[in-house]
Design a protein around this nucleic acid. Structure first.
Lengths: 337, 337
DNA sequence: CTGAAAGCGCTTACAG
DNA sequence: CTGAAAGCGCTTACAG
């Protein structure tokens, strides 16, 4: 019924090993032989049996992706990473197997022990993350997108959040701003353990201190009321804030821009605004925002690449921090004097 | 290095077939034999090689899930279905392979032809959906969550959106309301081809006509301004609307409740409100809303079940519409007279 | 209740 | 440049 490599070999009049090599390219195959094989493959609609290929070749061409999608996290941003991983994987001929919350650790163990997957991509990493320990213990090819507290023996990729914060501060300071504010994520983000919000905040505050400017920080819940209060707090009783950095979800950024407008504050006339580590498009905001983007495709394709390279022993444990870039959209300006 | 069934057999002092049968339960195994096997499995940390199992047993225990996650769709609701599918699959010892947009059709073809998966779950089905045609052509075990225009030869599961709309209308009519409004989804949802918004809207309007009440419909974009205008339109110049059904994303429902409050309209005193086909929790809204829920776990676990049963030839092509249920939370009341 | 063995469909040394 | 064959690690008739 369904064609096997034997059928292809018979139709092409060659041995199955030649078919295999012709398809994998692991051994040169004569021009006309290859053409006959290709014709047979097309005629029969042949595609190699994944199980057989996995058993014989010790490669499944499947990568596990673990993304807990905890109830308190912001789905679209997290999904962007899953999608980016899927896309990157396909570039290496890999598919992804999705492991979700209830099974994060157990599932990882199961799919690696059973050799269902060749490697693992760990998303939404917490400072203390059992998946990190498990990956270390299993010794399976893996890359984490994000940094656990202990990165020993691990391959990790992440945006350099500290450098991103510094870049934002520098940019504002150099435009003459002396009072900066960071509109951060909800409290839980700083407590729960993803450490990137902390890395960003700490670097923001430290850099401001270094540069001798005042820095304020607010951490509102994702509600209209809380956001409004946080913005008021950042602006200060005297309304002397002129540089605002937003490291929060798109809704909040939108509302904050509305809020500034309602207060009669112009961007960038009165307040310079930078969106930091955004995974969404800030060019469609009103006004469009300067951004130091967090590009899922970047970290994820690197993570996939590093994982696959581990299979050939080409990669040692290490941490890669991706340098931030600054995209100008006209939402910052020199401070009014 | 890594234990195989041969190691287990040797340690347990039995043949590999007995090990296999003991683990699969497909043949009775003597009490003490089984215990020795279990001990060996535990000692060696054995878990069957997925590739070998797939090759010999013709089952991969992997299901493909195709969810396009188009840019214009609302991520959290869609992810709820992916997650529900993953959870349901695990109950049958299945994992899921995630197929995304760029590869919807090509990927389906690839993973079924290569026998990477045993079956397919199709999410976010459009009226005209190439994935439906492909599934039909491939003859692979599959279930669609949602209805394409042509369901011939297909297994489909979905909430009965028409019945849900009728339930909402009946409820309001029976409480004495004579002017009803439907706050629907953005225009694109009605045009693009997911047909559930259409099914809901049409049944809503038809039922209202049947029951002899006035029905209004609005289809705002997911912005504050558009939503506000839509609510105003539904309320009407005379503000005579007293029954509101919302079939839209959670943000919009929240804003609408705020809006009603700002207008000094009480729920349910002035307006009775029902949330329809919501995948989110309406009990945390202010006020909590009566809801006819759309429960991803329900459709998805049924879809998984139907797909797996097709592998044993137990299922014929058919459409299953899930009967809607009404959850009362106090947001509807008899019309004030 | 249990075992020996064929076979699933590939990949990859080994040979020529 | 190509082939014959071993072997990957299971499942499942077939036998007893």
């Amino acid at each position: 019924m369904i064609a096997t490599i034997n059928d292809v070999a018979r139709v092409a009049g060659v041995s199955i090993s030649t078919v295999s090599y012709a398809l994998s390219g692991k051994r040169p195959v004569g021009e006309k032989t290859r053409r006959r094989i290709e014709a047979a493959v097309a005629e029969l609609g042949y595609s190699p049996n994944a199980g057989a290929r996995a058993l014989a070749g010790r490669r499944t061409y499947i990568l596990a992706v673990t993304e807990p999608l905890r109830p308190d996290t912001y789905t679209p941003a997290h999904m962007a990473f899953v999608l980016a991983t899927a896309t990157a994987a396909r570039n290496y001929d890999y598919d992804i197997l999705l492991l979700t919350q209830d099974e994060a650790a157990g599932g990882l163990q199961r799919v690696t022990n059973s050799r269902t997957v060749d490697g693992v991509i760990v998303l939404d990493v917490l400072a203390e993350d059992e998946r990190a320990d498990l990956v270390r213990a299993l010794g399976v090819p893996a890359a984490l997108v994000g940094l656990p507290a202990d990165t020993t023996d691990l391959v990790c990729v992440d945006l350099d959040f500290a450098a991103a914060a510094e870049l934002a501060v520098d940019r504002l300071v150099e435009a003459g701003h002396r009072v900066l504010g960071l509109l951060g994520q909800p409290q839980v983000a700083y407590q729960r353990g993803s450490n990137y919000p902390v890395r960003f905040r700490d670097a923001f505050l430290a850099r401001a201190r270094e540069r001798g400017v005042e820095a304020r920080f607010a951490s509102p819940e994702a509600t209209i009321a809380d956001t409004r209060a946080a913005v008021a707090e950042l602006l200060g009783p005297e309304g002397d804030l002129t540089g605002l950095v937003m490291h929060c979800e798109d809704n909040i950024q939108m509302r904050t821009l509305d809020d500034l407008q309602e207060r009669g504050l112009e961007v960038p006339g009165d307040v310079s605004v930078i969106s930091a580590a955004a995974t969404f498009d800030t060019s469609t905001l009103d006004p469009p925002l300067d951004v130091i983007p967090l590009i899922p495709a970047e970290s994820c394709s690197r993570a996939v690449e590093l994982t696959i390279d581990q299979m050939s022993g080409l990669v040692e444990p290490h941490v890669e921090l991706i340098a931030p870039t600054y995209v100008e959209r006209g939402s910052t300006a020199a401070r009014r004097t």
